[in-house]
Design a protein around this nucleic acid. Structure first.
Lengths: 152, 152
DNA sequence: CGAAATTTAATTGCGCGCAATTAATATGGG
DNA sequence: CCCATATTAATTGCGCGCAATTAAATTTCG
């Protein structure tokens, strides 16, 4: 019993439960747009650059086609994107915003403001946290190591 | 387009993708134990205090019975826990470790070490990040606010 | 005491996330 | 040119998370 890892020590659990809390906080804000949080992330990617392939979207969000294909089909069904095979390379599926999808960005503009407020954190702290989480994420993707000392 | 939120600005996405990276990092470590990451979290809770109700476990992990009931049934099937209705209050289901479940903590002892190493972060930084994420999580659970300025 | 309100788990339905497999297209070497 | 290999999406299967509902036991209060 004494050698068991402690929940309270774990950064992992903190990140896990913070993420779920964020998801819950986003839900009522995204519900009027008809989007889930992962769908919102895809829209963010497309608002930055329209006409990306499934693979490109996946690289940006670290998601694979098993997740993206059904998600994109739902976005297509509700009329925010179109999916077309690429002309040059027919393996690719290129995702374009519809007019509805493009204009949705106006309605979404206030969301980060509301969320940042709900978190009750300074802009600087938010940016700092973000950088550190992304850095750790990228380090986790690498080979790993043999022995160390820290809590998971 | 210019008013659309930017993915790169978002703490939310950083936390989201960090959590998924953690999940992927845990998988090969937990696979020999026969556990998923959420199942591992439940085991952590039980290693700290055996014989908790579903509600107590849920409060600790911020999960509801819709998630926990099937998860606990799987843990019961593989033989790590038992589930029994409480004698005093038959609404409750009390979860106990089996001998196998208890002794599993030895095999799990090295996991936080490996993870901490894979993240390549100092102990102090990890503790600091953890506190900040939990504090923000708890703030998100509260009422929210009207107007503010920060990125979600 | 007894009906209403509350608490506790279980159930249902849906959308991720991801591993593994499949199918179709493109590329490169002999 | 043709076959082996790569790449790209789609599909399948499973385990979360969570909202909403249901069912059963308990508590509260008139």
């Amino acid at each position: 019993m004494t050698n068991a890892p402690k929940l309270s020590d774990q950064l992992c659990f903190a990140a896990y439960s913070f993420t779920h809390a964020l998801n819950r906080a986003y839900r009522p804000l995204l519900e009027p747009l008809g989007l889930t949080y992962p769908q919102y992330l895809v829209m963010l990617v497309l608002w930055e650059a329209d006409g990306q392939t499934v693979k490109e979207i996946g690289e940006r969000l670290k998601l694979d086609s098993g997740t993206l294909t059904p998600l994109l089909k739902r976005l297509e069904t509700i009329g925010y994107v179109s999916r077309r095979r690429g002309k040059a390379d027919e393996r690719q599926v290129i995702v374009h915003l519809t007019d509805d999808g493009r204009s949705l960005s106006d309605k979404a503009a206030g969301i980060p403001v509301e969320l940042g407020c709900a978190m009750g954190a300074e802009l600087g702290e938010i940016a700092d946290l973000r950088e550190r989480l992304l850095a750790m994420r990228d380090r986790l993707g690498e080979t790993g190591c043999a022995i160390g000392e820290a809590e998971g």
